[in-house]
Design a protein around this nucleic acid. Structure first.
Length: 258
DNA sequence: ATGTCTCAGGGACTGAGA
């Protein structure tokens, strides 16, 4: 089973690149973030013709998440269903009906802006809502994969310049504590587990020659529940996709398990 | 140089968000 996550930064601007990537890598399941499209305008036929079933949760202009699967998707949920008034489309889940079914979730965690903006407390509160949601659902779901753009660099090894970033948004103690809360709920972050000392990144700023200078951060992650984590055979970042014409500012992250 | 992108609105460019 091959699963992947990619912040695509606009499906309209990137569907050709995505189609080529899917043809080359053939993941069973893909989570997208920042589709920046309403559901009605999502170019689904392109991907259905490659054999994928789609579930999208979009909004106009910003944010938006999607699930692609070569196996049927059941019981799609959008948002956290907690009654909060939140118009931002950032979380979608579904059950992948493979031989051994599992729950999959695509998360686009808030960026947070700067420490003094109102986007920062929104980010922290959003994480708390996600943690409550995961806690409430985890026994019912069994095996699960949670993937996405978490907008948190969990440790200094995940940041090109920890001195400069320490205490800034994506690297504060409050954010890292919440990110670690996912692990406290029994999920394991696969890339770091497979590569304990690798300081690879998943995102590089378009500005200031971020990618050529490798000034990036590892903020896109794949978490799985215990049983799946024990069956993982590989986890890697596809840096190639950050190259060439009109890349996203994020590279895909891929995991394989038996 | 806040040095690059995407998208929306409105029909060339500006603003927002990342």
């Amino acid at each position: 089973m091959k699963v992947a996550t990619w912040n695509i930064n606009g499906i309209k601007a990137r569907h050709d690149r995505l189609r080529a990537w899917l043809s080359a890598h053939e993941p069973d399941v893909l989570c997208l973030q920042e589709i920046k499209s309403i559901d009605e305008a999502f170019p689904g036929e392109v991907f259905e013709s490659l054999g994928y079933r789609l579930a999208t949760y979009g909004q106009k202009g910003y944010n938006g998440v999607a699930l692609f699967s070569r196996h049927p998707l059941e019981d799609v949920t959008r948002g956290f269903e907690d009654g909060e008034d939140d118009e931002q489309a950032r979380f979608i889940g579904a059950t992948v009906m493979a031989d051994r079914p599992f729950r999959v979730m695509s998360a686009y965690c808030p960026n947070g802006g700067s420490l003094d903006s109102d986007k920062y407390p929104y980010k922290l509160a959003w994480y708390d809502r996600m943690l409550r949601f995961l806690d409430k659902k985890r026994t019912a779901w069994g095996d699960a994969v949670l993937m996405g753009d978490f907008n948190v660099a969990p440790a200094d090894i995940d940041v090109h310049d920890p001195e400069a970033w320490c205490g800034q948004v994506s690297c504060t103690a409050a954010e890292r504590q919440r990110w670690e809360g996912i692990g406290a709920l029994g999920m394991r972050e696969i890339f770091r587990e497979m590569h304990p000392d690798d300081s690879s990144y998943t995102w590089w700023d378009y500005r200031q020659l971020g990618f050529p200078k490798n000034k990036g951060m590892r903020i896109d992650h794949i978490f799985t529940t215990q049983n799946l984590a024990d069956r993982v055979t590989a986890c890697y970042i596809d840096r190639q996709e950050r190259k060439g014409k009109k890349p996203s500012d994020h590279a895909p992250v891929v995991a394989e398990f038996d």
